[in-house]
Amino acid sequence: MADKLKFALALALLAAGVVGFYLLSEQPLVLRVLSVLVGFGAGVAVASFSEQGQRFIGFARESITEVKKVVWPSRKETMQTTGLVFAFVVVMAIFLWLTDKTLEWVLYDLVLGWK
């Protein structure tokens, strides 16, 4: 029950930040954005003390650890893969265009006799 209250309070703080953005419509944009950021920060801080927040923090830490294990492709590999994708798209576009024109010719000229 306490976790639900913490989560509800976090949502209320976030909503208060957004409401503050609109209530401060006469103020400079910096203050309005700061209102949203403070509401978001306070909501995240409160939510982090709930069970779901603790699980999310653990998940985020594990995700960062896994990202560090990834072997990212080099620039050359990325450019080669991108080139292959573009070439495949062009080949498929030509194939689909030829298929469309062939079916159009068969249906309209041969079967229906429309010219």
Rank of each mutant, 00 (worst) to 15 (best):
D109M: 00
V46N: 02
A93D: 06
V91I: 15
W105H: 08
W97K: 10
A60W: 06
F59G: 04
E104D: 06
R32G: 08
G83A: 14
K76A: 11
V71E: 15
V91H: 02
F88N: 05
V18E: 12
F56V: 14
V67R: 08
L110D: 07
V30H: 08
T78D: 00
E62I: 06
Y108I: 05
K101C: 01
S25G: 06
D109C: 00
A10H: 06
Y22P: 00
G58M: 10
L31N: 13
A8Y: 08
I64W: 07
V33A: 11
L29K: 12
F59H: 07
P28T: 10
W97N: 05
F88C: 04
R75N: 04
E77F: 02
W72R: 15
L98W: 05
G17N: 03
F95T: 09
L34A: 15
W72E: 12
F59D: 02
V19W: 11
G58Q: 14
S48H: 04
S25C: 01
F21W: 10
L14C: 08
L34P: 00
A2N: 09
A16R: 04
M79R: 06
K68C: 01
I57Y: 03
R32F: 12
L9V: 15
L112P: 00
T99K: 04
L29F: 13
I57Q: 13
V111M: 09
T82P: 00
M79L: 14
L84T: 02
L110V: 14
W114I: 11
R75F: 10
K68M: 11
A2D: 08
E62V: 07
L84S: 05
L29E: 07
E104H: 03
K101S: 10
G83C: 04
